Amino acid sequence: MRTADPTGAAPVPTETVATGTVPTGTVAPRPTRPAGRTVLRIGPWVALPVRRASLVAGTATLLLLVVAAAATLSMGRLGIQLADLPSALAGEATGKNAFVLNRLRGPRLVVAIATGAAFGLSGALFQSVTRNPLGSPDVIGLGAGAGAGAAAAALFLPGVLPVPVGALLGAVLAMAVVFFATGTGFRNPGRLVVAGIGVAAMATALTQYVVYAVERDKATALTSYINGSLSARSWDDATTIWTVLLLSLPLAALLARPLSVGEMGDDLSSGLGARPGRTATGAVALSIVLSAGAVSVAGPIAFVSLTAPQIAKRVTRGGGPHLVMSTLMGALLLVLADLTAQQLPLFDNLPVGLYTMALGGTYLGYLLLREWRRPA
């Protein structure tokens, strides 16, 4: 195509491209990435845009998790020497090292990583749907329901129904009650929280009754479980929680984009073609599955699902649900809490849930101080 110049100059050959009309021989500018983003390529077909701050924070969190895992296996009187740790992990452990790795600390560590990751991802999904930074599956009664189920199994069906199975059934029953009590399923975050608070109150009352009703030695073991414990975990527990986590990760990846759009509001997300109601139901259901799986192997460990997404959001300094970062942060927080529970000399064999409660309380106090200091 040739265009005439009104001044009489020689015509300049041009061609039409997607970006407009440019002279022939010139290269159309490539679309630029948003500032601060990096593209991760997996093979020739997959390209994932990632914020650099998120990539740096995720890498640092993963490195800290590796360090915490090595400390868990090596610290203390029964720990594996750091020099022997690589060979032990390669399958060459013998004697005491084999016992520590295969029976004492190895399963406990693997369960802690997956359980913390499941709680962190569960909290990120729930907070994104409810748009509530203080929201978590605990708020809607899942943890309390699990505790009540464990307590009921210990009192009414001792030796017949295992306590972890009772906890899982209690969590599922509590969520079923919440689902029907709202009248809209999991679609209305406000009704969800109100119904969950009521279910949690009733479940806590049942748990406290059982603790007082059972014998003292059984009550001690039950109290340890309903506060969240990682002691005496087995490879079967590790298989259970890792199966739940690995099956949930692809579903969470499918929800990531609708959740990001949904944070702009239901009206705008509907205008962009998203389905807020369906996204909310799917995210809450997946959050419940993750939390129930974690509770079934470790008990209702509190505050990990609340604090992990908030810390993830602050270290990445960006918008969005932060699913990957929340997963890594949840794993790191629980491994650190369990390491403290094992190695702190002041207390012996306290449930790890007590340490996460202390962490959560400290974090909430920090948030409260920030609000006080913020100018009106």
Rank of each mutant, 00 (worst) to 15 (best):
L272E: 09
P11R: 13
T16P: 02
A238W: 13
A283Y: 02
D5S: 05
S305G: 15
A35W: 14
P31D: 13
P133H: 08
R30P: 12
R108F: 02
M175L: 09
A70E: 09
L286T: 03
L332S: 06
P31K: 11
F347L: 15
T16I: 13
S269H: 11
L367A: 11
Q310M: 08
P300N: 11
T59H: 10
A124G: 13
G319T: 09
P309M: 12
A221F: 03
L346S: 07
G265N: 03
L268F: 14
L333Y: 01
T223L: 10
L40K: 14
R33K: 15
L290Y: 12
T38Q: 14
G76D: 05
V315D: 06
V211C: 04
P351T: 04
Q310Y: 02
L247Y: 10
A148W: 06
F186Y: 14
V111C: 06
A201H: 07
T184V: 12
L173I: 13
F156L: 15
T24S: 04
A294F: 11
S234C: 03
L82V: 05
G196I: 03
F347V: 15
K313T: 13
L104A: 03
W235H: 09
P6T: 09
A312G: 13
A144S: 11
F186M: 10
R30D: 10
S260K: 06
V100W: 01
L367V: 12
S326K: 14
T21S: 05
P6Y: 14
G320C: 09
Q208H: 12
T19F: 02
V211E: 03
M264A: 15
R105E: 03
A308N: 06
P31G: 08
R51E: 12
S260F: 04
V324N: 08
R108H: 04
E15Q: 15
F347H: 08
A200I: 07
G293L: 06
L306G: 00
P44G: 03
L104K: 00
G190K: 00
K218G: 09
V304P: 10
P162I: 12
P158F: 14
D236Q: 03
L350W: 08
V244K: 08
V100Q: 00
A28F: 05
L64M: 13
N349I: 08
L359N: 01
T223V: 12
L251W: 09
T316P: 12
S296I: 00
P49V: 04
A203P: 06
L336I: 06
A283W: 01
G25K: 14
F180R: 12
A10G: 01
T356N: 07
R105C: 05
G185K: 11
V214Q: 02
L125K: 10
P158W: 09
P276C: 10
G190S: 12
Q343P: 01
A221S: 15
A341D: 00
L62K: 05
M1F: 15
S136Y: 06
L339I: 02
S326I: 13
R37N: 05
L222R: 02
G198F: 03
